[in-house]
Design a protein around this nucleic acid. Structure first.
Length: 794
DNA sequence: TGGAGGGGCATTTTT
DNA sequence: TGCCCCTCCA
């Protein structure tokens, strides 16, 4: 490929555009050197790259070189002259994925990749399209993209305006509904009556419509609109749709299994004409069903990916099943697990790598011990010179992180939490952006409202209400209403003066932005408004971090030509620059781990109720269970060499200790690829306790995996009296060991006797049933416990 | 108007 | 158990 090729971009110009496959295009392809980029692809990958025409579904299992196929395919399209970079639509879900793809394409084909102006997320591409045709959907091209917090504030206003009690019908809930509708591609008029009525006694649909109207008046859109408005644009203006259909000769979609209905419709409209749509995904890694990645118009649960062949007849389906990531046992364990799912297209991953280590399963007495065991293993790996950056701990819910973090802090193991609030979702960033938005666009009411009293300057609800009333009556933006109000005596002198000062400041900053660089303006605004000061005076632990984030924000602004373009860019693609040179263990949710890989992966919390998550089961039944299982599959397949599963028999949920049962997913793992971990020296107590957990365990303890776990335990521990590691801080355990032995011959506890439980503390025995005691604990209330868990007092 | 404390609540989350 | 939101009071 000639990298300095100054070919004109055929788009938006009258430049001659050789048709794909035309003589000149073929001639050009013939001139191009043989395609070195195809080297090293396996036959399936190569097929996926070369099947350029018509609909193609690439089922790419974990670690099968999916990104490589995508990037090579693009390189191939360009190198063979089938399309110019600007004629390829390439969609990803995250900005990170888009960035990485661009980098990798550049590495293969050189700077021509810069011409890929349609490589990005659904949302960024949607934005680009909407800005071009904004007026056709009732927007101006400089529309603002609202973040979640702005959305919520707006919905609150809408709810109040309709005279609905916001406490009874919280904005958050409405946001959920609207979000769901938008995910399914439904505008206010298309929501099924039954659903629209579900909120606020039948007013759901009306609120949705009112919300959309408010957005339009504010010249704003939310994330969902970025797709929905495109759909509307294309449906109402077929000529424009046609432009895009012609423009995008080839379309590629990454992570297709995660597309929601709106995205699916968006793609289908575009692909209708040329049908050169290549979707890459893995039905076994579909873990965002709850976010609208399923459920079609008829309400049936149908994954887009499962019906691709139906929607695109004659589609080529290519399976990538050669895994280049994990060792044999890990891969077989994951395959065995996912094979238990029914709703799947079916793939069997294989590897030519060595079997490697088996997946380990370790039981812990409680979540604290679980964290300790993980900590110890990490230390051991570190001692063996394993890099900490190659270790990850993947949890089901964020709440699990706390105990693990505590442990890592105690051990002094450096770690980082991945995920959490995005950079631009952080309060301080949103605040700073709001200031800049007002400077840039004084009519931005949402931004104005956000910062009018941040930092606190005595312009509270009362003042805002006055402004609102005027703004509404005079149909002007808040800022303009404020200008008017400060000239009247409607406000008390103090707030009036403050407000006037603020208006003067904004006038000054707006003027500054004409001469100063945008980062200097930002700096000045943040200082003069007292915003930086506010955080400097803040004594809370994260204030320093927030100031750091603000600096980062100002720094990142330098890359943009002006404030306007910075703001346009920022709402979609801002991310914190992680300049991290220290090696750290990564801690994140399973969801956040998708797409990542590590040598060693710790998977704590494999317990019924937590994982599979009870709520997923309650709300979505079998579909929920299968999604949870896919999540487990994603977890295991993140590991290259070591996957370590843990469960605890006791876990604190919302502050209360619950006894738990190992996850059914443990039993889904093929026996031959799994080993029950050597019982740690201090674990035998737990082991002996597990043996007595039956009354609490429901039926699951009978399952093969559980029996395996027990059998192994019996062979590796010595009946509950293993030498305890010295220094174990849990002193009373030895006593409990004795109690275990004692209680085998029957209960030695009497009604009314006082006992001490390691977790629940002291209590009085209220009933005895075999080895089960009902104890009224002084602090924890009445519980049924096993006698082996308590020590007789006095 | 704003800080302090009580009540309710508590998956997963790109854009 | 801890957090967030809301209300109450200074």
């Amino acid at each position: 490929m000639n990298q300095s090729d100054p070919r004109p971009d055929p788009q938006d110009s009258l430049a001659h555009e050789p048709a794909a496959g035309s003589l000149s295009a073929r001639a050009r392809a013939a001139v191009a050197p043989q395609s070195p980029y195809l080297n090293g692809l396996n036959p399936e990958q190569r097929a996926a790259v070369e099947a350029t025409e018509g609909p193609v579904l690439v089922l790419a299992g974990a670690g099968t070189g999916k990104t490589r196929v995508l990037t090579t395919r693009i390189a191939h399209l360009i190198a063979t002259g089938k399309a110019y970079p600007s004629q390829i639509l390439s969609v990803t879900f995250t900005n990170k994925a888009a960035r990485e793809m661009r980098e990798r394409i550049t590495a293969v084909i050189g700077p021509v990749a810069e011409g890929m102006q349609w490589l990005g997320t659904f949302h960024s591409i949607g934005t680009k399209i909407l800005r071009r045709h904004a007026e056709l959907v009732g927007l101006r091209s400089d529309f603002t993209i609202l973040g979640t917090d702005d959305q919520l504030r707006l919905m609150k206003q809408v709810i109040e305006a309709e005279g609905i009690d916001e406490k009874r019908w919280p904005a958050r809930q409405l946001a959920g509904h609207i979000d769901g509708w938008k995910n399914r591609g439904l505008g206010p008029d298309q929501v099924p009556a039954g659903e629209a009525g579900a909120f606020a006694n039948g007013k759901g649909g009306r609120l949705y419509r009112a919300y959309q109207e408010r957005l339009k008046t504010l010249n704003a859109v939310d994330f969902g609109d970025l797709l929905l408005e495109c759909l509307r644009l294309w449906r109402e203006h077929p000529d424009i749709l046609e432009q895009y259909q012609n423009r995008f000769r080839y379309m590629l979609v990454d992570e297709y299994q995660d597309t929601n209905v709106a995205q699916y419709l968006w793609l289908r409209l575009l692909a209708q004409a040329r049908k050169n749509l290549c979707c890459v995904g893995d039905d076994d890694q579909s873990i965002y069903g709850w976010r609208g990645a399923e459920v079609d118009k008829r309400g049936a649960e149908v994954d887009n990916i499962l019906r691709f062949e139906h929607d695109f007849p004659g589609a080529t389906v290519i399976r990538l099943e050669r895994n280049y990531r994990s060792t044999g046992h890990i891969l077989s364990a994951a395959s065995g697990l996912i094979a238990k799912n029914q709703g799947r297209l079916g793939k069997t991953l294989r590897t030519e790598d060595e079997p490697g280590e088996k997946v380990t399963i370790t039981g812990a007495w409680d979540s604290e011990e679980e964290a300790r065991l993980i900590g110890e293993e990490i230390e051991a790996l570190h001692a063996k010179k394993h890099s900490l950056s190659e270790i990850a701990i993947l949890v089901r819910i964020s709440a699990q992180m706390r105990e693990i973090e505590d442990r890592l802090v105690t051990l002094g193991v450096p770690y980082r939490v991945i995920g959490g609030p995005r950079f631009y979702e952080r309060a301080e960033i949103r605040d700073a952006l709001a200031y800049l938005r007002v400077v840039n666009q004084p009519a931005d009411d949402l931004a104005f409202e956000r910062i009018v009293n941040t930092p606190k300057r005595g312009l509270g609800d009362a003042t805002i209400q006055v402004l609102h009333n005027h703004a509404r009556a005079a149909r002007v933006p808040l800022m303009e209403a404020a200008r008017f109000i400060v000239e009247t005596d409607e406000l008390k002198p103090k707030p009036r003066g403050t407000l006037r000062d603020l208006l003067i400041s904004f006038g000054r900053w707006a003027k500054l932005s004409e001469t100063m660089s945008q980062s200097e303006v930002a700096q000045t605004v943040l200082e003069e408004s007292g915003y930086t000061d506010m955080w400097q005076k803040d004594k809370s632990a994260d204030a320093a971090g927030r100031l750091e984030n603000l600096k980062e924000l100002v720094r990142s602004m330098e890359e943009f030509p002006d404030l306007q373009s910075f703001l346009e860019h920022v709402s979609l693609v801002m991310e914190a620059n992680e300049s991290d040179t220290v090696e750290r263990v990564s801690l994140m949710t399973l969801h956040a781990a998708k797409g990542l890989e590590f040598d060693t992966v710790f998977l704590p919390g494999w317990e019924e109720g937590l994982f599979p998550n009870q709520r997923a089961l309650d709300e979505s039944g079998r579909a929920g269970l299968e999604e949870e299982r896919r999540l487990a599959h994603v977890g295991i397949t993140r590991a290259r060499r070591r996957a370590k599963i843990y469960f605890a028999s006791n876990r604190r949920i919302h502050g209360l200790w619950n006894s738990t049962v190992p996850s059914r997913f443990i039993d889904d793992l093929p026996e031959s690829n799994v080993e029950v971990a050597e019982a740690p020296a201090n674990f035998s107590y737990g082991g002996s306790r597990f043996d007595r957990m039956q009354p609490f365990s429901g039926s699951s303890y009978q399952t093969p995996g559980w029996q395996r776990a027990q059998a192994h335990r019996a062979s590796t521990d010595d009946g509950g009296y293993s030498a305890r590691r010295s220094g174990d801080r849990r002193g009373p355990m030895l006593i409990e060991g004795e109690l275990v032995a004692k209680s085998t011959g029957g209960s030695g506890f009497k009604l009314g006797g006082r006992v001490l439980h390691t977790k629940f503390g002291p209590g009085t025995i209220e009933a005895v049933d075999g080895n089960k005691l009902t104890v009224e604990f002084d602090k924890a209330g009445r519980k049924m416990v096993l006698d082996s868990f308590v020590e007789a007092l006095g």
